[in-house]
Amino acid sequence: MFEARILQGSILKKVLESIKDLVTDANFECTANGFALQAMDSSHVSLVALMLRSTGFDHYRCDRDVTMGMNLLNMSKMLKCADNDDTITMKADDAGDVVTFMFENPKADKISDFQMKLMDIDTEHLGIPDTEYEATVKMSSNEFQRICRDLSSIGDTVTIAVTKDSVKFTTSGDIGEANITCRRTSDGDMKEEKVKTEEDGEKVHNTKSSEGQNVDIDLQEPVTLTFALRYLNSFCKATSLCENVRLQLSKELPVVVQYLIEDMGYVRFYLAPKIEE
């Protein structure tokens, strides 16, 4: 028996929206640790890894490991029927061929359940080694989305160059070229900003993207890599999950684009670089 109840159903809805255009069918692995997914896009250029830890759910029960193969477009259709403030419960029997999504509104006076057929998906599971990356960039997820969107109107690929003081995004196309440089902001800017207001004294709030780029760089070695913007734009569909995005880069390795999911886990996207031959 698998049963997982998430109070903030909007998180699950957002997660699905962020991956459903990249991956068609995927196996969700339900274990005592949590609800996880690893899948490649159809071209095998990128990979998504999702982890929703059991401790982040309001209720979680997993008697034995279950693999649930789902069509993500169909799953998204079902989750779209849940309101953002609904609680969502997923249920499946160990040997069953359906998953049930149950939605409850905050007043608990409307309860819906949707059953979706599971599928057998034959897929290879890839081992992702722990890697020390040469460059780690943390920046506003809104800014990253904006940069990828803006550059994709000029070119198809982006070259990301990280130095200790800045991260530079470059593209070129038929109409010309573009460079966007985000300077590393001073220490501590990424965390929290203290704002003094007259009424309530000192108030702590997260910095908004409008106040700057909030770029934090951890660098072992300067790195320059080129990626297809189409995929990065797809990853940016996860923007609403987290205020910040973390990019990890190393020479000739896939970039890792990570969005943390508050108190629950993460969605990580891996994208293989383009190389000049």
């Binding site: 250029v45 290879e124 890839l126 081992g127 690929t157 994208l271 383009k274 190389i275």
Partner: peptide
């Protein structure tokens, strides 16, 4: 000429 690498060439199959 720029070519796109594949993700499976970086991570081994388990």
């Amino acid at each position: 000429y720029v070519s796109q690498l594949h993700i499976s060439s970086f991570f081994r199959t388990e």
